[in-house]
């Protein structure tokens, strides 16, 4: 279990979901003649001028609006993503500059498939919890790509969230502890220079997602001496609708605890942003004293589990910036052809 010397928490948080939605039925129309079940209703698609950087900046600004801190006091900006705009050149320096956190700041881009965002949060807990710095900005954001016609194309989506980690006394939610469970499990990957990821099909289930999510979750609750009933909400990494539903059931959570943070049916799998944006949707409506249990998952593979307690300060900051549901409500449905153009799948030269 990871527990810092000084208590730390979430001083500010912000979500981002792009405007465009591709219905799963559109993917089915093009690739399966409309036959077969659909894993979600629709997924969020970034516009032509959006990428992980632009979306990170907006989520970060929302986090800052809520925290109302001086951005020059941020000591680290970490952006977790598998879709950084550059292969070499940090997304995080541009975010830091855009929000006024540069130049006295650590900045780095993280990669751990869908777990890169929660990894940044744990690192932030370390910096703030040790007293090295007062605030850390941790972001999980993706414009996830999927091979045309692949099962992942139904769900691979764009979006994510940003968290300002700071001292517990200033926080709207406090981290009680976290716990990570990491192994070498090759369920999903993308080689250098490859445009689309590859995966192990059904191997991504039991030995990968379920093993890591449930182990990390069970162990953290065991270490803390908590049980699912102690929590008001649970949010899990959500590559599709069924996986988090089943993992929650295995861990002993109810559908009622799961539903607020289960956004995948309406925005898809935002990869490094997936469990994080589920958490922002919960924080938007949480009440002081509520407890939240979160488990991320990243292929390759690993999970970070977190136990979070909401403080009195939550009600002050919920309305200072657009809420997760505001972004979800802002939607324009596009067809597969527009999706192909927006996601740069057209060969132009």
């Amino acid at each position: 279990m990871l527990k810092p010397d000084r208590d730390v928490g979430i001083v500010g948080y912000g979500a981002y979901v792009p405007r465009y939605r591709l219905p799963a039925s559109e993917v089915a129309r093009v690739w399966t003649d409309g036959s077969g079940g659909l894993p979600i209703k629709e997924k969020a698609v970034a516009g032509l001028d959006e990428d992980t950087l632009s979306m990170s900046v907006e989520a970060a600004r929302n986090a800052l609006e809520r925290a109302r801190i001086d951005p020059s006091e941020i000591r680290a900006v970490w952006v977790g993503s598998e879709s950084h705009p550059y292969a070499v050149k940090p997304t995080s320096t541009i975010v830091a500059e855009a929000i006024g956190a540069a130049p006295s700041v650590q900045a780095a881009d993280l990669e751990f498939a869908c777990k890169a965002g929660s990894e940044a949060i744990v690192m932030g807990m370390g910096i703030v919890g040790s007293g090295m710095g007062r605030y850390v900005l941790a972001i999980g954001m993706d414009t996830a790509q999927a091979r045309p016609g692949d099962a992942l194309e139904y769900t691979a989506a764009s979006g994510g969230a940003a968290f300002l980690i700071g001292p517990a006394a200033e926080s709207a939610a406090v981290y009680e502890a976290s716990l990570s469970h990491v192994t070498d499990t090759p369920d999903f990957w993308r080689r250098a220079y490859a445009h689309y990821p590859s995966h192990g099909h059904r191997f991504t289930g039991e030995p990968a997602y379920f093993e890591h999510v449930t182990t990390a979750g069970r162990r953290l609750m065991a270490e803390l001496g908590t049980v699912p009933a102690d929590y008001n909400y649970v949010v899990l990494h959500q590559p599709n609708t069924k996986f988090p539903q089943r993992a929650a059931q295995i861990l002993g959570f109810t559908t009622e605890q799961l539903k607020t943070g289960l956004l995948v049916p309406v925005i898809g799998n935002t990869y490094a942003g997936s469990s994080l944006i589920g958490l922002t949707a919960i924080l938007d409506i949480a009440k002081p004293g509520d407890r939240i249990f979160m488990v991320s998952f990243g292929s390759g593979a690993g999970s970070d589990a977190f136990s979070i307690r909401v403080t009195d300060r939550i009600t002050e900051i919920q309305n200072r910036a657009p809420q997760t549901q505001d972004y979800i409500a802002r939607r324009k449905v596009i067809d597969y052809a527009t999706y192909v153009r927006y996601r740069h799948k057209l060969q132009m030269k």
Binding site: L48, D326, R330
Partner: peptide
């Protein structure tokens, strides 16, 4: 909002800058 303005081909720099959108919401 901060968005991609243009890019210098497939290998060059990406230029980010301001654009404007309808107000997402009055906060």
């Amino acid at each position: 909002v901060t968005r991609k303005l243009s890019q210098d081909g497939d290998e060059g720099q990406i230029l980010y800058g301001y654009k404007f959108r309808p107000m997402l919401r009055q906060v």
